[in-house]
Nucleic acid binder design. Structure first.
Length: 151
DNA sequence: GCCAACGTTGGC
DNA sequence: GCCAACGTTGGC
């Protein structure tokens, strides 16, 4: 059982969109970064939990807790020539991109990035590192516990 | 396989 | 809108 942090831009898909989704679940499609893909494809297991993080918005921060409800499978958006996630180099036989499905466990208060930064014990978190851009990052158990205590 | 140019991310 | 960081692309 591992812990993760998954970023989403609320203008694309917010915590409230998540709560309104059928079954409160969604495919985490559209990831086009190899490291993030590998986390999903190779390491995420059923029942793993993740912080749902709002990025690129007025108040970035953690907005909820989600869990992996379906292990990695080919990201269908890579095959759609009309879509913005189309990848001409991907084929059904050799898909390049994968995604897991996630289910909303609960919406939490919005825990702002500034508040995470204010916690000295969280200084090592990947999301807080300078230049961090990865949309999916592992969270270690101690950090997970500390943060859930703040929610 | 190197590396410069380019594009994207994302906080501020 | 700015800009630092960094992943990707493509010529060589």
């Amino acid at each position: 059982m591992r812990y993760w942090l998954m970023k989403s831009e609320p203008s694309e898909f917010s915590i409230d969109d998540f709560a309104d989704a059928p079954g409160k679940s969604t495919s985490w499609f559209g990831v086009r970064n190899y490291m993030a893909r590998n986390f999903m494809r190779d390491q995420m297991q059923l029942g793993d939990q993740a912080f749902f993080y709002h990025s690129s918005c007025a108040v970035p921060g953690i907005a909820g807790i989600v869990e992996i409800c379906k292990v990695a499978h080919p990201d269908l958006t890579q095959f759609d020539p009309e879509g913005k996630y189309f990848d001409p180099k991907a084929t059904a036989e050799k898909p390049r991109w994968f995604n897991v499905d996630v289910r909303l466990v609960k919406k939490t208060r919005l825990l702002p990035l500034s508040e995470l930064r204010a916690q000295p014990k969280l200084a090592g978190m990947q999301i807080l590192q300078r230049g961090n851009r990865l949309s999916i990052t592992p969270v270690d158990a101690a950090d997970w516990k500390l943060i859930t205590g703040l929610l």
